[in-house]
Simulated scan of single mutants.
Amino acid sequence: MRKLRARSLSVSEARQMLRGHELDSATIDEVIEDFGRRGYLDDAALAEVLVTSGVERKGQGRVALSRALAQRGIPREVIDLALDELPDDDDERALEFARSKARSLARLDHDTALRRLMGQLSRRGYNGSTAMKAAKTALQEATFGRGTSGVRFVDSD
């Protein structure tokens, strides 16, 4: 109960925590079933909260969200249902994140800025094509109106 007060647990995490207290499997199953009936353990509700948090606070894409839920021991079918509830706006979220980072990378040469921004987007779980499109668009917007280098050639005639 103390663990549940500190942080919501998946059924898998609760089972693992109870094993650490050297309980037999029948007792563990009873506790898990009781906690499920009381609403203390609900993988679907936990997945929904984690997906919402990952999208709103961390700007994560589907890949990162799926990985995070799987690491918490949430079953694949529950993960798929939670991700199906997401609007199909990975492209928009990736572009929004890329825009927020592109301004700080605009001082770098284009290839370096693109590589770094792609890495940041990939770590947040955006697939390669989504990350590339968002990074290119954001960098183009950040550098629009200024030359690609600081070098100017002046005619001295």
Results as ranks from 00 to 15, higher is better:
residue 109 D to T: 04
residue 104 S to E: 15
residue 82 A to S: 11
residue 93 R to K: 15
residue 104 S to Q: 14
residue 100 S to N: 13
residue 46 L to M: 09
residue 39 G to N: 06
residue 112 T to E: 14
residue 56 E to V: 06
residue 37 R to A: 09
residue 72 R to N: 02
residue 111 D to H: 08
residue 34 D to I: 04
residue 24 D to R: 03
residue 96 E to G: 07
residue 11 V to T: 15
residue 58 K to T: 02
residue 81 L to H: 11
residue 25 S to Q: 07
residue 37 R to F: 08
residue 47 A to E: 04
residue 51 V to C: 05
residue 20 G to T: 04
residue 32 I to L: 10
residue 81 L to T: 15
residue 51 V to F: 01
residue 26 A to V: 03
residue 69 L to C: 04
residue 59 G to K: 05
residue 83 L to F: 10
residue 104 S to D: 15
residue 82 A to K: 12
residue 65 L to R: 03
residue 52 T to Q: 13
residue 104 S to N: 14
residue 70 A to Q: 14
residue 35 F to G: 11
residue 100 S to K: 13
residue 101 K to A: 15
residue 62 R to P: 14
residue 106 A to F: 02
residue 108 L to A: 08
residue 115 R to D: 15
residue 38 R to L: 15
residue 79 I to G: 02
residue 39 G to Y: 03
residue 46 L to T: 05
residue 88 D to I: 01
residue 73 G to N: 02
residue 49 V to W: 04
residue 50 L to K: 08
residue 55 V to M: 09
residue 15 R to K: 02
residue 92 E to M: 06
residue 87 P to W: 08
residue 117 L to F: 08
residue 90 D to A: 15
residue 74 I to R: 01
residue 73 G to V: 01
residue 55 V to T: 09
residue 93 R to N: 13
residue 98 A to E: 00
residue 36 G to V: 09
residue 95 L to G: 04
residue 19 R to S: 08
residue 107 R to E: 10
residue 89 D to M: 05
residue 12 S to P: 00
residue 94 A to I: 05
residue 30 E to N: 06
residue 60 Q to L: 15
residue 82 A to P: 12
residue 103 R to Y: 08
residue 55 V to G: 09
residue 23 L to Q: 01
residue 81 L to M: 12
residue 96 E to W: 05
residue 38 R to H: 12
residue 79 I to N: 11
residue 44 A to Q: 12
residue 51 V to K: 03
residue 108 L to W: 04
residue 112 T to W: 03
residue 47 A to S: 06
residue 115 R to Q: 15
residue 70 A to V: 05
residue 70 A to R: 13
residue 43 D to I: 07
residue 98 A to L: 00
residue 101 K to P: 05
residue 26 A to E: 08
residue 11 V to M: 03
residue 86 L to E: 07
residue 114 L to R: 12
residue 42 D to N: 14
residue 45 A to C: 01
residue 71 Q to F: 02
residue 92 E to Q: 08
